[in-house]
Each structure stands twice: as C-alpha cells, then as structure tokens.
Amino acid sequence: MALLETRMLSKSFGGLRAIQQLEMDVEEGSIHGLIGPNGSGKSTFFNLVTGVYKTDPGSVVRFAGEDITNFEAHEIGRRGVARTFQLLRLFSEMTVLQNLLVGYHTHTKYAAAAPIFRPRSVVRADQEASESMFELLSIIGLAEFADMPAGELSGGQRRLLSLGRAMAMRPKLLMLDEPAAGLSPTNVDVLMGIVLDLKKRYGLTLLIVEHILKVVMDTCDRVTVLDHGQKIGEGAPHEVKDDHAVVEAYLGKEMSDEEVRAAFAKAAR
C-alpha cells in the first residue's frame, strides 16, 4: 500500500513551473529515493508535501489514505510526516535535548496551562519525555552532548541532531533532504547506518533526496528521477541508472561527430 501518494501535483512560482503534474507513490516500509539535477524540484516537492508551500489547484497529496493537500505544516507533522532540512534549521540556542523535546512536542501529554503549578503528572510526563529522548540520543550517538547548545555542535553532529529531531516526532514517514551533504565518506556510512537502524527499529518509511548517488543506489528500493519538475524516470536503482533520459538529464545529451565538429569550430572562431 502506498503511504504517500501525489496526484497531479503542480506548483508554479510566477512563470516557473517548479513541479508539473507529478504522480508519485511511496510504498509503506520502503526506502524511496528522489534524485535529479539542481533545480529539478526535489526540495519544492518536499515543501509541498510538508505544507511549507501551498500547491496549485488540482493537486492532491494523500498520506495513509487521507487527503492532506494544503494542510498547515503542523497538521501534517502531527499525522506522522517528519522531515529534515537541507540547511538543517536547528534551534541553535536551545540545547541538544531541548531540540529533541521540541520534536516530541506533539506527544506531550499535558495541557498548555498545566505546568504552572507543576503537579506530579506534569513532572512525570516531562521525565518520561526526557528519558525517551535520551534513548534516541544514544542511538544517534549524541547523548554526551545533551546539555550543549545545538549551535556549538560540529557539522556532522548537527546533521545527526536534525535527524534525531525528526525521529523524536515518532513519524511514520521520514523525509530526508540531502542527509549526507557535506559529510566525509566515512561519516556518510555512519549516518546511513544509523538511518537504516532507525528504520528497522521503528518500522519507518523513508523518502530520501540525495546527491551522492552511491547512497541512493546502495540503500533505496525504488528511485524517482525529476528534471524540470517532471518525472523522467522511476524504478529500481539499477534500472534508473541505465535509463537513457536519466543519464541525459544528469550528463547532457550525447553529441554526434558532426555536432562536436560544429562546436569546436564555433569555439575556435
């Protein structure tokens, strides 16, 4: 069954059609990769699904069978869609633990006014939340930094924290926007190891945007390729890799001898 479905998903910014009638299914329990050259609409797709942007009329986004098109971002988050951001967007002045607790917000069991007198129920709920967040911190390997402001972490640790914050929401669908960008090859392996561990542990469905093709090819069950906001290929990683249109989108069209000669002549002039 498809956990996330989009039908006729479109988004224009003025004259620029960032996403055009995109139809995509993310199967429950799968790892779905989303690739494409810069500006092909991957991040726009994320922002449309998570409610950061409003879609154009006619678009439909369904999550777990429910129509969530143009819901407010927090409504979508509440339903079990968590995401990370390309630029991380951590709460830098808050501590590592607090960052996770914000992610856990929707699971806090007391009303907004209850903490005023700190009855035992609130103290207990806060303790439980902290404990389960510490469990998550030890999975992502940041337990010893719990009380450090998030802004003081290293680049790799920040990426892990943004993953942890999304996981603190106890999501069904985890959407990762370039999780491995800027990491060294060793750290990429560590990170993907943690991601796969989390998936197994919590029965996640993953949707990954990634530029490092090795990550996509090694981990994904299914890959969708975008170019200029359109789907130009879909299938298992090895199928996509050999797809003519995909290669063309990434590397450009193969030129005939005539064309090469013409290009050289033009350059020499």
């Binding site: 998570t50 950061v52 971002a73 927090h74 988050g77 914000v102 992610g103 929707t106 914050r165 929401m169």
Partner: peptide, 8 residues
C-alpha cells in the same frame, strides 16, 4: 518553519 514541521 522547523517549529511548524515539528508539529507546533
């Protein structure tokens, strides 16, 4: 934006 994505 991150706060909203976290369900706030």
């Amino acid at each position: 934006i991150a706060a909203a994505a976290a369900g706030i």
